[in-house]
């Protein structure tokens, strides 16, 4: 029974990967559509990172755009001023973000839900201010920051299809990492903290330590995604790191379904497509996020993944009742 379920999940993952590999073909090689697909890979990693923090550990962050910025600018600056190849500086920037995340979590681990969200909003604001008023204008302030696109040891990712495959490899690696973390002693400690902090502590879980780990991991994911953005677009603007970017991450995660592997993927795909479709109504973006968030919170707390699970459970129940009646 257990093995059957496991191999069933593995099969689903394989199908998903095959479909993902065919995406550029399905999109007819359209450069614009492939660019959208590239953004989906970036957002999938971001939303999955936030999911480690919120979905599994129960810690909210309304300031993850800050880590997205640290990843993008960090990788860019390391490469620009220290001459480190972008591909390597991406990892360094993500590691720095993880460290900053851990430092932030050290005091923030004492804060309860809404106070934590306020603290993270403040953190997002601090990073935004640093980016827009940087010492010596190293980030280019409001003019934005330019950098050449990503090449991996000479392999230039100079079109969107190439970048998409790079993004896909990253997604697979990050999702494997997420699964490994979540299904282990560490992950069980995360979930225990989410479910009942007091009892988790009573069972020997060092709550503060695991909250710090969760923050660091999620910062690493989101910062790496931020650095991918730089590698893809070659340009950063401070306005990408406003509060609404943080809200976007939260919306994607909640809409798809938190505390699941598929949720953030589904959330990233559906919200990104929706946003691209509604490009002409860009000024209403926050309104759209707001409505989506309301729908999720009120009507389907488990997001799309949760809703599908409920429907499945409903069908099974009805089938069981029918069988009972027949007998």
């Amino acid at each position: 029974m257990k093995n059957k379920k496991l191999s069933g999940n593995l099969l689903k993952c394989l199908v998903a990967v095959v479909v993902a590999l065919l995406v550029p073909v399905l999109l007819g090689g359209s450069s614009y559509m492939c660019l959208v697909a590239c953004f989906v890979t970036i957002y999938t990693i971001s939303a999955s990172g936030l999911d480690v923090l919120y979905g599994y550990s129960g810690q909210i962050s309304m300031g993850h755009a800050a880590f997205y910025a640290i990843g993008g600018y960090g990788a860019g600056l390391l490469s620009e001023y220290l001459g480190i190849p972008l591909f390597i500086s991406m990892f360094i920037a993500a590691a720095i973000a993880a460290l900053i995340g851990a430092l932030l979590a050290f005091p923030a681990s004492k804060l309860k839900f809404h106070f934590l969200s306020l603290a993270t909003i403040a953190f997002g604001e601090i990073i935004y201010q640093i980016v827009t008023n940087s010492p010596g204008r190293i980030t280019g302030n409001y003019n934005g920051f330019f950098h050449s696109k990503l090449d991996i040891f000479g392999l230039k990712l100079d079109n969107n299809i190439k970048f998409y495959y790079f993004g896909l490899v990253c997604v697979v690696l990050f999702l494997i990492a997420k699964t490994m973390i979540v299904r282990s002693r560490t992950g069980r400690a995360f979930i225990a903290i989410r479910e009942n902090t007091q009892a988790a502590e009573g069972m020997g879980v060092n709550v503060r330590k695991y909250k710090i780990i969760a923050f660091a991991v999620s910062a690493f994911f989101v910062a790496f995604a931020g650095s991918m953005y730089l590698g893809l677009v070659g340009y950063l603007h401070p306005d990408m790191y406003l509060q609404k970017q943080s809200v976007l991450f939260v919306t994607m995660m909640l809409f798809g379904g938190s505390a699941s592997l598929a949720g953030p993927i589904i959330g990233a795909i559906s919200i990104e497509i929706l946003l691209e479709g509604l490009r002409t109504f860009e000024e209403y973006q926050m309104l759209i996020y707001g409505i989506l968030l309301l729908i999720v919170i009120v009507a389907m707390p488990g997001g799309i993944v949760g809703a599908v699970k409920n429907i499945k459970a409903g069908i099974l129940r009805r089938r069981a009742q029918k069988l009972d009646k027949e007998v």
Partner: peptide
């Protein structure tokens, strides 16, 4: 004060937390 959304087995696994050595 159980971990309500975790399974019975997972609850006991968390109970073993302090006996285990694996780390992040």
């Amino acid at each position: 004060n159980l971990f309500r959304k975790m399974t019975v087995q997972e609850n006991i696994m968390v109970g073993m937390h302090s006996r285990l050595k694996s780390n992040f």
